[in-house]
Protein backbone atom coordinates (compact mmCIF):
# COMPACT_ATOMS: atom_id res chain seq x y z
CA UNK A 1 0.00 0.00 0.00
CA UNK A 2 1.36 3.45 -0.85
CA UNK A 3 1.86 5.52 2.28
CA UNK A 4 4.06 8.23 3.77
CA UNK A 5 7.17 7.01 5.56
CA UNK A 6 8.42 9.09 8.49
CA UNK A 7 12.16 8.94 9.18
CA UNK A 8 12.41 9.44 12.95
CA UNK A 9 16.13 10.08 12.66
CA UNK A 10 15.50 13.14 10.50
CA UNK A 11 12.22 14.45 11.90
CA UNK A 12 12.64 17.37 14.31
CA UNK A 13 9.02 17.25 15.48
CA UNK A 14 8.38 20.83 14.45
CA UNK A 15 4.74 20.30 13.44
CA UNK A 16 5.17 22.37 10.29
CA UNK A 17 3.85 19.61 8.07
CA UNK A 18 0.52 19.66 9.96
CA UNK A 19 -0.45 23.07 8.60
CA UNK A 20 -0.06 22.01 4.95
CA UNK A 21 -2.16 18.85 5.40
CA UNK A 22 -5.70 19.57 4.28
CA UNK A 23 -6.90 16.13 5.35
CA UNK A 24 -6.11 16.39 9.07
CA UNK A 25 -4.03 13.25 8.67
CA UNK A 26 -0.91 14.29 10.63
CA UNK A 27 -0.68 14.24 14.39
CA UNK A 28 2.32 15.45 16.40
CA UNK A 29 2.72 14.30 19.99
CA UNK A 30 5.94 15.72 21.42
CA UNK A 31 8.43 13.48 19.59
CA UNK A 32 6.03 11.11 17.88
CA UNK A 33 4.64 11.95 14.49
CA UNK A 34 1.86 9.80 13.06
CA UNK A 35 0.03 9.84 9.74
CA UNK A 36 -3.45 8.32 9.68
CA UNK A 37 -5.52 6.63 6.94
CA UNK A 38 -7.10 10.01 6.24
CA UNK A 39 -3.96 10.72 4.16
CA UNK A 40 -4.74 11.21 0.47
CA UNK A 41 -1.06 11.05 -0.59
CA UNK A 42 -1.22 14.61 -1.87
CA UNK A 43 2.55 15.08 -1.33
CA UNK A 44 2.32 18.50 0.34
CA UNK A 45 3.97 17.47 3.61
CA UNK A 46 6.82 15.75 1.75
CA UNK A 47 7.60 18.91 -0.21
CA UNK A 48 7.23 21.07 2.89
CA UNK A 49 9.45 19.23 5.37
CA UNK A 50 12.57 21.37 5.93
CA UNK A 51 14.79 18.35 6.54
CA UNK A 52 13.30 15.74 4.22
CA UNK A 53 11.98 13.41 6.91
CA UNK A 54 8.96 12.31 4.86
CA UNK A 55 8.92 10.07 1.82
CA UNK A 56 6.39 8.27 -0.31
CA UNK A 57 6.75 4.52 0.18
CA UNK A 58 5.01 1.49 -1.24
CA UNK A 59 5.18 -1.74 0.72
Amino acid sequence: MPHIDIDPEKCGYCGGCVIVCHDDAIDLLEVTLTISDACTLCNACIVFCPVGALEMADD
Binding site: G16, I19, V20, I26, L28
Partner: peptide, 26 residues
Protein backbone atom coordinates in the same frame (compact mmCIF):
# COMPACT_ATOMS: atom_id res chain seq x y z
CA UNK B 1 -1.74 25.85 19.48
CA UNK B 2 0.77 27.17 17.01
CA UNK B 3 1.54 26.09 13.48
CA UNK B 4 0.20 22.57 14.10
CA UNK B 5 -3.13 24.01 15.29
CA UNK B 6 -6.15 21.77 15.15
CA UNK B 7 -8.46 23.75 17.45
CA UNK B 8 -9.62 25.96 14.57
CA UNK B 9 -10.35 22.93 12.39
CA UNK B 10 -12.30 21.28 15.22
CA UNK B 11 -14.25 24.49 15.71
CA UNK B 12 -15.07 24.97 12.03
CA UNK B 13 -12.36 27.45 11.02
CA UNK B 14 -10.29 26.16 8.09
CA UNK B 15 -6.62 26.81 8.85
CA UNK B 16 -4.75 24.45 6.52
CA UNK B 17 -2.53 26.31 4.02
CA UNK B 18 -1.22 25.60 0.55
CA UNK B 19 2.51 25.49 -0.13
CA UNK B 20 2.66 29.16 -1.17
CA UNK B 21 1.20 30.13 2.22
CA UNK B 22 4.02 28.83 4.41
CA UNK B 23 7.73 29.07 4.91
CA UNK B 24 9.74 25.93 5.52
CA UNK B 25 12.50 26.85 7.98
CA UNK B 26 15.54 25.35 9.65
Amino acid sequence: DGVESLVGRWGGIETALGLTGVFSAV
